[in-house]
Design a protein around this nucleic acid. Structure first.
Lengths: 377, 377
DNA sequence: CTGTTAGCGCATTCAT
DNA sequence: ATGAATGCGCTAACAG
C-alpha cells in the first residue's frame, strides 16, 4: 500500500503538498498539482482511512443498531432508507443487531461508540428511557428510531401506530360499517398493543359509535390466533360486518376462519390487516392493510443524525473562530447546511393500502349473513 | 475521551505498561496491573480503535457486500449467519449493498478495501469472473458467496441449486408421480434457470422417465407467470399429476390457477415450490418447497473468510520468526487455529420442506381428474 | 518487569 | 506557495 510519503517522493514535493492536493485545503501551484495527481495515479494511492480518522477525530461512519435483520423485512427496509441518505453523504454504515436483548443492545451501542462513529441511529426496544437518555449524553449525535424518548423528542423518529389503526377503522366506518370487530393481541401490556387499541377506540369515538367489548377478541398475535379469535367471535354471536386485526398474520388467520365457516370476505365481512406484510398481497382476497412507512423513517432518522452532526461541526467551528486567529477553517470543517426538523417531520403516520378485502356496508347482505347465526361446528 | 497517557499518569506508570495490561502482551506486576485497571475504570478509558488499527494494520472489521438487504429475506438471513460467526470472533461487520449493479458492486468493494477490512465476504452478481479474480489478488482475504469462480473454488461458498431441484422432483417420483410438469422461468439464459432445469432433467433421467417438452411451461417468474403457465399447460391438454415450480411465487400462482379450474391441490395435482418464501406457509394448502440453507451459507462464508485470514496471519508469523530474533510474537499475532475446508464443506444442497401440497399418486383419482379434459374457459 | 523511544500515515502549523 | 516539524493515540523494539 502506497503512502503519502511514496507519493511525495515520486512527485518531488513534500508530504504537506500532497496532503494539500488530497484535501484541496490550500492553494497549490498547478504544475505540482499535476505531478502529485500523476504520482497518486501511478502508485494507486489510497489514503489510509485510519490515519485520517486518527488525526481528524472522525470516522465517516454512521453506526446503526437494529433489532434483528431477519425479523421480517422491517429492518432491511429501514436499512435501505438509511443507506439512501448516508451513502450520498459519503459516509459508511456499520450495523449491529441487538436482538431486542438488553445486554446485547447495550454492548452494541458501546461498540459502535468505541468505533468512533460520527453518529448513531438506534432502534432499541430493551433499554429503558433512562438508559437511553444516559447514552444520548455522549459526544456523538444519537438518534432513536420507533421510539419516543422523553426529553429527547427532537432526536426521535417514530411512527404513530395509533393513528394508523384509527385510519383503518375510519376507512371501514366510511364504508358504512358500524359493527367493527377488533382481532387483538393478547399481549395487552405491550406498547404496540396499547397504541393500536387506542386508535381503535378513537376512531369509534369520533364517529359516535359506542365501544362494545364483545367485539374485541384477544388471541396470540399469529395466524392461529387470528383463526381462534374469529371462532370465539362467532360463538359469541354478536354480529359484525367488518374487522380490523392487530397484524396481518392474525388477519390472514381470521379470513381463513371466516372462509371455513362459509362467510365470504369481503361480501359479508370486510377485513383490514396491519403491517403490509408480503402475504397480504398473495392471499385471496388481497388484504387491505396498514403500512408503516419504514423506509422513510430510516431516511429521516439518517437525515436527522447527519443534521445533528453538521450542527455540532458548525458549533465547533464557531468556537474556534472566536478563540483563534482567523484562519480558513471552513475548509477543514467542510461545513454543511443544517436544516431544522419540526416535531411533525419526525412523526410518521402509517397509510392505508387499499386492496380487495373491504366492501361497503350492505343492509341486504347483512340480513342474509350467516355471521350472527353461525355457531362453531 | 481519555487516552492511554491520561491513564498512565493517573496510575503512575509508563504508557507502555498501560498498553501491556490492555493487550496482556507481557507480564506486569500485579500491583501495577491493579493501579492501571483502576485508572482505566476511573477515566472510563476506551482505547482509540483508529490508533490501534493504524499501528496494527488491521481493523477488526469484516466487510460484506450484499445485493440488497431488502430483496426479500435472503440477504438478511445471510447476514445473520455471518454475524453469528464474526461477532464471537470479536470483529465487526460492515455491510454495503451493490444492488447487483456493476459499478456499485465495484465501488463498494473498493470502499471496503479502503477501509482496510480484515477480510471480505462478497456476494456479486454483476462482476465478471475475471474481475473477481482480479479483486481476489488483493492482500485481504476475500470469499465469494453463491457463486463458483473458476480457479478460486476454495474461496467460494455456494448452493447446488440443481441438486435442490433434483430433490424436489425425486420427492414427487417417490410418491409415484410420472407426469411431472415444470413451471419454469422464461429467463432461460439465467444461470439459476439453467441450474434448475438441469436438476429437473437429471431427476427424470435417473428414474428412467422420459423428458417431455410439453410438460415444461415457461413464464415470467412471478405469481402471474405461474398462473399463466398453468393455464397454458391445461390448454395443451397434456395431462400431469404434479408440478415443480421455478420459485414459490410461480407455485402460488399455479396453485391458484388450478383452484380456479376446480382442480384440487394436492388431491389431483401435487405441487412443489422453490425458495421457502414465507408465503408458502400461509397459503392453503401449505406449500411443499425447497429451502436454501442461506444462514448456514453465511456462517460458512464467514468462517472461511476468518480462516483464510488466520492462515495468513500464521504465515506472516512464520516469516518473521525466521528472519528475526526469536521473540514472543505469538502474543502479538494471537494465533488462531486454522481449520481446513474441503470442497464439500463449501457446497450446500438445498433441502426439501415437506408441507401439504404433495399427495401420493393415485390411479383412481387420475381417472376422474379434470386435468386432461380441462380447457381454458 | 519497566520506562524510554521510535514510528504507524496523515493533517496542520510554523516558518520560509 | 511550500517544506520541515509536530502530534493524533497507540504498539513494540530497545535498553535497562
Amino acid at each position: 500500500m502506497a503512502t503519502i510519503k511514496d507519493v511525495s517522493r515520486l512527485a518531488n514535493v513534500s508530504i504537506s503538498t500532497v496532503s494539500r492536493v488530497i484535501n484541496k485545503s490550500l492553494k497549490v501551484s498547478p504544475d505540482k498539482v499535476e505531478a502529485v495527481m500523476k504520482a497518486m495515479e501511478d502508485l494507486n494511492f489510497q489514503p489510509n482511512s485510519f490515519a485520517q480518522a486518527l488525526v481528524n477525530k472522525k470516522s465517516n461512519c454512521i453506526g446503526v443498531l437494529v433489532g434483528d435483520l431477519c425479523g421480517g423485512p422491517f429492518f432491511a427496509q429501514m436499512m435501505r432508507g438509511i443507506e439512501n441518505v448516508i451513502l450520498p453523504a459519503n459516509k459508511f454504515v456499520i450495523v449491529m443487531s441487538g436482538k431486542h436483548e438488553h445486554d446485547r443492545e447495550k454492548n452494541s451501542i458501546e461498540a459502535l461508540l468505541l468505533r468512533r462513529c460520527d453518529a448513531l441511529v438506534v432502534h432499541s426496544k430493551a433499554l429503558s428511557d433512562q438508559e437511553l437518555i444516559e447514552i444520548a449524553r455522549s459526544d456523538v449525535p444519537i438518534v432513536f428510531v420507533n421510539r419516543l424518548v422523553p426529553t429527547l423528542e427532537d432526536r426521535c423518529v417514530w411512527v404513530d401506530i395509533s393513528s394508523g389503526m384509527e385510519t383503518a377503522v375510519n376507512h371501514l366506518i366510511k364504508q358504512g360499517h358500524k359493527r367493527i370487530a377488533y382481532i387483538a393481541s393478547d399481549e395487552v401490556n405491550n406498547q404496540d398493543a396499547k397504541d393500536r387499541m387506542d386508535g381503535y377506540h378513537r376512531a369509534l369515538n369520533n364517529a359516535g359509535i359506542e365501544f362494545d367489548n364483545d367485539l374485541v377478541s384477544l388471541a396470540f398475535p399469529d395466524e392461529n390466533g387470528g383463526h381462534n379469535a374469529i371462532e370465539s367471535l362467532l360463538m359469541r354471536d354478536v354480529g359484525f360486518t367488518a374487522f380490523v386485526a392487530y397484524n396481518d398474520a392474525m388477519a390472514v388467520g381470521a379470513v381463513s376462519a371466516l372462509t371455513e365457516n362459509n362467510i365470504s370476505v369481503p361480501e359479508e365481512v370486510s377485513a383490514i390487516g396491519f403491517d403490509n406484510n408480503l402475504i397480504t398481497n398473495y392471499i385471496k382476497p388481497k388484504l387491505t392493510t396498514v403500512r408503516y412507512p419504514i423506509e422513510e423513517v430510516g431516511e429521516t432518522a439518517a437525515k436527522l443524525a447527519l443534521n445533528v452532526l453538521y450542527a455540532r461541526e458548525r458549533e465547533e467551528y464557531e468556537e474556534r473562530k472566536e478563540k483563534e486567529t482567523n484562519k480558513s477553517y471552513e475548509k477543514k470543517f467542510d461545513l454543511h447546511e443544517v436544516v431544522e426538523f419540526t416535531r411533525e417531520d419526525l412523526k410518521f403516520i402509517p397509510d392505508l393500502i387499499v386492496r380487495d378485502s373491504v366492501a361497503p356496508y350492505d343492509e341486504a347482505v347483512v340480513r342474509e349473513s350467516k355471521v350472527k347465526k353461525q355457531k362453531k361446528k
